[in-house]
């Protein structure tokens, strides 16, 4: 029992994964390969969809009977609605960024459905994604409030006298919370996608143990494949949550600029989102 704690990451040992099997995600060149795969799929679809951009109704380039450009348009409309609903009327200018985030995360997740690993199943990639997201949020905050205004925003409400100490503490806590946003974003994505992999692995192992089809050849019924629908759901939901949280952070940061003349617009920002 000491074995799996000491050497491996296998917190699913009880579910059938045998000790010693290491899960470190893809190596550097593996990550390069998978990012290249995702980008190839993404850019292939995008350049395919671009051929129908001139048509009046976006039904033209179809893949297996599905309108590709129409799907992209639906994604765009969905992201726009997300941005405007969460950030407010000025959220429209962040649509491009959020949409790129959505497409990257979603296609990575899709790759995770069919391949042994994927960019988003790698914590390092997710941390990079989260860093870019939070960095973009800070950049937009600085652009909206100015450098000084943005950092004063961390210190909470204005307090006088000795209460300045409390402001200082709030400032430190807010900085830590900003850093934790990275961790939360990346860990959530990694845990969901990689956890899905491990769940499928464990179920396959279960199938191998219950019905050994091929004996030594290792053939078995892939019970884990039955997790496909819920993994697909996870793909969509995780991509959406990543974008939604980026939107929420953006709205938190850019909220002050139009608090006065846009009161009550958009939906209330969830408190303590970090």
């Amino acid at each position: 029992m000491e074995v799996w704690i000491g050497t491996s990451t296998s917190w699913l040992a009880a579910a059938g994964e045998h000790g010693g099997k290491e899960h470190h995600g893809p190596g550097f060149w593996g990550l390069v390969f998978y990012i290249g795969l995702v980008l190839a799929i993404l850019f292939g679809l995008m350049s395919f969809a671009k051929t129908g951009l001139k048509s009046r109704v976006f039904t033209k380039p179809t893949l297996f009977g599905l309108p590709v450009l129409g799907a992209f348009e639906q994604i765009y409309l969905f992201i726009e609605q997300l941005c405007v609903g969460t950030i407010g009327a000025h959220g429209r200018k962040y649509v491009v960024m959020i949409m790129v985030f959505w497409m990257l995360v979603f296609f990575s997740n899709l790759v995770a459905l069919f391949f042994p690993t994927a960019p988003t199943a790698d914590l390092s990639f997710n941390l990079g994604l989260a860093l870019v997201s939070i960095g973009y949020v800070q950049w937009e905050g600085i652009k909206a409030n100015g450098l000084f205004g943005h950092f004063r925003h961390f210190a909470g409400p204005k307090l006088g006298g000795m209460l300045i100490l409390i402001s200082l503490i709030i400032f430190v806590i807010e900085i830590i919370s900003e850093l934790m946003k990275n961790v939360s974003l990346s860990l959530r994505l990694y845990g969901n996608i990689d956890g899905g992999h491990r769940a499928a692995d464990a179920m396959n192992e279960l199938g191998k143990n219950i019905i050994p089809l091929g004996g030594d050849t290792g053939l078995s019924i892939p019970i884990g494949a039955f997790l496909m629908p819920i993994k697909l759901l996870t793909c969509v939901v995780q991509a959406m949550i990543f974008c939604l949280l980026t939107c929420v952070y953006l709205s938190l940061v850019t909220h002050h600029e139009d608090e006065h003349h846009e009161e009550g617009h958009g939906q209330p920002v969830p408190a303590g989102a970090h």
Binding site: F28, K50, F125, G128, L131
Partner: peptide, 28 residues
């Protein structure tokens, strides 16, 4: 259980920095 490789993270940030403007001007 947290397999983190900061080199990959740094490279990812670089890739994304390139990717965002490219996708923006290419498609979005």
């Amino acid at each position: 259980g947290i397999p983190l490789d900061l080199g990959k993270t740094i490279a990812t940030v670089g890739v994304l920095l390139i990717l965002f403007p490219v996708i923006k001007f290419f498609f979005v």
